[in-house]
C-alpha cells in the first residue's frame, strides 16, 4: 500500500485493525491477555471481582494496589503479613494498606504465591510504566506481591523457590476503589514466564454478614477501619 501521500498513509493505517486476542470472560468489563513482559492496569470500583488466570501454568502476576481516591495510601506488604500472622498468600487473606484498611480480599486462590521477594528489575520497569499512566512515579512503588510462583522460607531464613504450580487462578475482591497495576514477568528467583489472563466484573464488597468480615479479629478491625473511611467520605 502506498504511504508516500497523506491519503495513502491514512488508508494504510486504517487497514491495519485486527481483532484483539482476549480471554473468554462473559460479562467482564475488563478482559485482557497479558503476554510475558507485558503489563496491565485499570482503575476499578469497590466491589469489583478481579480474576487472574495462569493460562498455561508459568505466569507470574506481580501486583500493586493503590487506593484510587488517595494513591499515597497503598498496599503494605509488611503490614499484610505481620497483621495476619502469615507470610503466605491464599484464599481469605486480606491485602492491607498502610492505613489499616482492606484494599482487597483474596476470595479464591490456587497454587503458591509470594509476598517476600517483590519484583525484578524488569518488573520494576513495567510497574514504572503502568504507574505513570496514573500519574504515579517510582516513589509510589512499594514492595509488591507476586502470584503463581511460590517461595518457601526455610527455618534458617533461606528462600526455597518452588516456582510454578501449574495452571490456576486467583480472584480478588476490591474493598476500596483501586488503581490495579499488574506486571507479568519472571519471578525474581525464576527465569520463565507465560501468558496471564485478567478479567474483572462488577460485584459487591465484603459485607459485615460475610464470614470473612469476622474470620479474624485483625481482619474485622481492618474492615471496620475501611467502613469508617467510606462512611465519612459518603461512599457507603
Amino acid at each position: 500500500m502506498n504511504t508516500s501521500t497523506t491519503y495513502g498513509a491514512r488508508d494504510h493505517a486504517r487497514a491495519q485493525e485486527q481483532e484483539v486476542e482476549r480471554p473468554d470472560a462473559p460479562g467482564a468489563f475488563w478482559a485482557e491477555r497479558v503476554q510475558p513482559d507485558g503489563y496491565a492496569h485499570r482503575v476499578v470500583a469497590r466491589g469489583t471481582v478481579l480474576r487472574m488466570d495462569d493460562v498455561t501454568g508459568d505466569a507470574c502476576a506481580h501486583v500493586l494496589l493503590h487506593h484510587a481516591d488517595q494513591p499515597w495510601e497503598r498496599l503494605n506488604v509488611a503490614d499484610t503479613v505481620k497483621v495476619q500472622w502469615n507470610a503466605y498468600l491464599g484464599a481469605g487473606v486480606l491485602l492491607l494498606s498502610d492505613q489499616g484498611r482492606v484494599l482487597a480480599s483474596i476470595t479464591e486462590s490456587s497454587g503458591a504465591h509470594d509476598a517476600l521477594c517483590g519484583t525484578s528489575p524488569q518488573g520494576r520497569s513495567l510497574f514504572t510504566l503502568a504507574a505513570a499512566k496514573h500519574g504515579l512515579t517510582p516513589r509510589d512503588l512499594p514492595p509488591s506481591l507476586s502470584f503463581f510462583q511460590g517461595v518457601h522460607v526455610m527455618p534458617d531464613g533461606k528462600l526455597d523457590f518452588t516456582g510454578a504450580s501449574g495452571p490456576g487462578s486467583v480472584t480478588l475482591r476490591a474493598e476500596l476503589p483501586l488503581i490495579v497495576l499488574i506486571a507479568n514477568t519472571a519471578h525474581p528467583l525464576g527465569s520463565t514466564c507465560s501468558a496471564l489472563d485478567v478479567a474483572a466484573w462488577r460485584g459487591e464488597p465484603t459485607a459485615p454478614s460475610d464470614p470473612l468480615w469476622t474470620a479474624t479479629p485483625e481482619g474485622r478491625r481492618a474492615f471496620e477501619n475501611t467502613a469508617d473511611y467510606l462512611t465519612a467520605r459518603g461512599l457507603s
Partner: peptide, 13 residues
C-alpha cells in the same frame, strides 16, 4: 519482613 509499627496497624494488631 515485619515493617514498622504505625498507629493504624496497631489498631489491627
Amino acid at each position: 519482613i515485619g515493617g514498622a509499627c504505625s498507629k493504624e496497624s496497631n489498631t489491627l494488631r
